[in-house]
């Protein structure tokens, strides 16, 4: 059924991504590809993988943005982007076959690959670019929140989180139940002012992004900070300065 679930447990599994600590190393991207090419569903296909013009399906990608405030130097923000498992997921309701669905028990948005006809309408309906057509299997691929890891009792408990979360060396990615206000992720969102992407699209994303912490800015203008000092005063440096001056 591609209607959104009417009966839910209130559980909303999702990710919290810290834009302050993400270093843009792409480890989550690579580990996502590695896990999901061998786990749930068909492999994540690539075309011309070792050639001049490689194209493939990935479930997680990192963009890098430059933000320029009015009165301060520009800063770089690395921006990982994957499915936000929206509560009002437009990708689910447009699906003509029932392949695209949102689970009532934990809110994960999934694609039943054996039902997908590869029409691509769900990707059109998603404002975030979270879905990519697999160029080999011709079915729609998307983040599964590693549904084959998080409930998997055959792997150590520490590994029962999405591959991207498990691998992040900066711990910029957090996984948990955003429907429970007492969960660690919910507290983190409350404390750091976690935000929705494109709230004006009305999708109500479950995943939240933590904004970069405010920078401390020196009152001295940059041009002054980098300029050579006029004169060293006293000590060894003072002697060296005057000695070199005399040469």
């Amino acid at each position: 059924m591609t209607s959104l679930p009417t009966e839910t447990t209130g559980k909303k599994l999702g990710l919290v991504i810290d834009l302050d600590t993400c270093v843009g190393c792409h480890a989550c991207v690579v580990n996502c590809k590695e896990w999901n090419t061998g786990g749930y569903g068909a492999p994540l296909g690539d075309e011309d993988a070792y050639g001049a013009d490689p194209v493939g399906s990935w479930l997680n990608r990192i963009h890098t943005f430059e933000v320029t405030p009015d009165n301060a130097p520009a800063q770089i923000v690395h921006f990982p982007k994957s499915c936000l498992h929206c509560e009002d997921a437009p990708c689910v309701t447009v699906c003509p076959t029932g392949a695209s669905y949102k689970r009532g028990e934990d809110g994960i948005v999934l694609v039943d690959e054996s039902m997908c006809i590869g029409c691509g309408l769900c990707a059109w309906a998603c404002p975030y670019g979270a879905r990519e057509m697999d160029p080999v299997e011709n079915i729609m691929k998307k983040c599964t929140l590693c549904v084959d890891r998080i409930y998997n009792e055959n792997i150590p408990e520490v590994d029962r989180v999405p591959a991207c979360v498990r691998t992040c060396p900066a711990q910029a990615r957090h996984f948990g139940d955003l429907g429970d206000p007492e969960s660690d992720v919910s507290k983190l969102v409350a404390e750091r002012g976690g935000m929705d992407l494109m709230p004006e699209q009305g999708t109500r994303p479950v995943n939240k992004y933590l904004p970069p912490r405010p920078k401390t800015h020196s009152n001295t203008p940059l041009s002054k900070q980098a300029a050579p000092a006029d004169k060293a005063s006293g000590g060894f440096l003072g002697w060296l300065d005057s000695a070199l001056e005399k040469l």
């Binding site: 991207v29 194209v55 990192i62 963009h63 890098t64 943005f65 935000m195 494109m198």
Partner: peptide, 25 residues
């Protein structure tokens, strides 16, 4: 700015794409 949520900080512009080539999107 709204797509990244970073608009409150200043002017946002893409510095580097996630990939050098094309993708489905």
């Amino acid at each position: 700015g709204t797509a990244t949520g970073l608009g409150f900080l200043g002017t946002v512009r893409l510095l580097e794409k996630p990939h050098s080539g094309q993708n489905y999107l």
